[in-house]
Design a binder for these strands. Structure first.
Length: 279
DNA sequence: AGTGCGGCCTGTCCGC
DNA sequence: TGCGGACAGGCCGCAC
């Protein structure tokens, strides 16, 4: 389940591999995903050069001269890069759930997504010219690692909001790229109960939460993300941040106070927290 | 406007 | 060993 650190890792790994290269050939499964390339898109891509590979929220942004190719990994999406000694045809036939294949001649980038919650789409730069504008265009909230996302900002954003803080953290229209794993981990590290109504966050708590969210995301990026079930890097390598999860998916006791961790559904998502450390 | 919920998907795991 | 059901959950569309 790629969140910000995983997508950042994918972008960082993919950029040097395909930057300045030209797409020679495109194949799609045409199976229904949240969105997929149209016939026009498919005809457009061949011959186009990759200018840049970045990340906005949980989107992988493959930048061409006139357009953005956006990949959202949903729950189970991943990229696989393969050298072209395997022809496209053989790669598609030997791997299941491939929905997009970008051929660059010397290598092939495959998008694989068993659950098809992901999306692949093309956006014209006629609207959003920069990735900042793209973020606005997509309705994506604050990049949590940007300087603009501060304690003061979070305090301001949460005034008059009654929802539980964990749901707020995971709302991409408010804060970009934070999903179940990093919301749970940041709240644990900040000592904040996931069910706390947003408006009850003090300035001090906002400050802790912003610091913990930033540090947990940065640490995860430095470790290549969390490798859980459906996520692995480009060539199948594992992100090692999974070893540093303190509450997400944990059944052991709290690493700080040894109390039993509690599991509950928050916004239809399983959440683990420490009832003693998180108040 | 803010909020909550259902639906989309299939591989994996667990209990019988 | 085989099978059914629970579970994983980001995002969108919709209703209130």
């Amino acid at each position: 389940m790629p969140e910000l650190p995983e997508v950042e890792t994918i972008a960082n790994n993919l950029a040097p591999l395909i930057q300045a290269k030209i797409i020679t050939n495109v194949w799609t499964s045409d199976l229904k995903m949240r969105s997929q390339l149209s016939e026009i898109d498919k005809q457009f891509l061949p011959g186009k050069r990759i200018h840049n590979v970045t990340r906005v929220g949980k989107y992988l942004v493959i930048e061409l001269l006139e357009k953005y190719l956006l990949v959202h990994f949903g729950m189970s999406g991943r990229l696989i890069v393969t050298q072209n000694e395997l022809s496209i045809k053989r790669a598609i036939h030997s791997l299941k759930h491939i929905h997009l294949c970008l051929n660059f001649g010397d290598l092939v980038v495959l998008y694989q997504d068993p659950r098809r919650f992901g999306s692949v789409r093309i956006i014209s730069k006629a609207g959003p010219k920069t990735t900042g504008e793209l973020s606005k265009f997509l309705g994506i909230g604050f990049e949590p690692l940007s300087a603009k996302f501060s304690a003061e900002e979070l305090f301001y954003m949460t005034r008059g909001i009654s929802r539980q803080i964990k749901i707020f953290l995971m709302d991409g229209k408010k804060i970009a790229g934070v999903g179940n794993i990093y919301a749970a981990e940041a709240l644990f590290r900040a000592g904040i109960r996931p069910t706390l109504p947003c408006f009850k966050l003090s300035v001090a708590k906002c400050s802790q939460l912003v610091a913990c969210l930033k540090s947990v995301l940065l640490k995860a990026i430095s470790k290549g993300g969390s490798s859980l079930r459906d996520f692995s890097g480009l060539s199948g390598e594992r992100g090692s941040f999974v070893d540093e999860h303190l509450v997400y998916g944990k059944k052991e006791n709290c690493v700080i106070c040894t109390a039993d961790l509690r599991r509950m559904d928050i916004g239809q998502r399983t959440t683990t927290f420490c009832p003693r450390c998180q108040r």
